[in-house]
Amino acid sequence: MSQGAAIDHAPPARLGRRLSAMLWRRPRWAAAALLVPPMGWFVLIYLAALVTLFVAAFWQVDDFTGEIIHRWTLRNFETLATSPTYRTIALRTVGIAAAVTVTDIVLAFPCAYFMARIAGPKLRATLFTLMLLPIWLSYIARVYAWRLILAHDGVLNWALGEVGLPPANIGYTNIAMWLVFSYIWLPFMITPIYAAIERVPGSLFEASADLGARGLRTFTKVTLPLVVPGIIAGSIFTFSLTLGDYITPVLIGGTGSSFIGNVVYANVGIANDIPFAAAFATIPAVVMLIYLSIARRLGAFEML
């Protein structure tokens, strides 16, 4: 009895030790205990949501009351396939996402190269801060700022007038959207390209120079091939972020500026036609799936 009392002094420690001993003896249980919370999260929040989305795409909505009817139909996909409106919107979304990605690659490469290869540590830190500073501001605030810049009586037209040029009047157009998207997602392109360039050993450039290659040759034969995975990694950000956006088209776009996201938003938040929204939402999901599988082939995932 006295022995038992002595041990009873620290029951939590005993329980803990027992548990750890048991898990040590059965490593599978330990693995299961570690995996259950993240797997549960993954299944419930992520996969269940995705499956719901795909299942809902085959339902339809009562015309008048707006209630969802749980009856299988291909009507939503039929509408999508046959209507030129939705085809135009899908193509516009993908087209602008691609244009933004290309623009950002062109703009980001020199910046990243300068920061990684030419700038000293102090200048590099300053440039990094400057590049990342806008991200600290709310996305909405930056988009609204562009609205004021591009408005008819805005900063851009005023500046053009001051130097004697005709007004640009690009407010509320697809050009304005392209500009704003390119600005907003630029840091997401610079960072991975910078990381890729920094990883290239300096000795490779020296070797290239020793073998008689000039600047352009070194760039096309050494730098670019080694940096491509970084570019692809950055393009995943710029492409997918533009593809999924629906705020900038509302605030910056004009007529004929709807994105897939806007149609989805209008059908969920406004029309309450969730099945149709789900059907349309499968398009960017499929586009991204194809894009990611190509990116994976090109080795971009090692740069993330």
Partner: peptide
């Protein structure tokens, strides 16, 4: 297993509604 669990969840949630 995860996909099967997800599909079951959906099937349970998707009860018909009348307005």
């Amino acid at each position: 297993t995860a996909v099967a669990a997800a599909a079951t969840t959906v099937a349970l949630v998707a009860l018909p509604a009348m307005a």
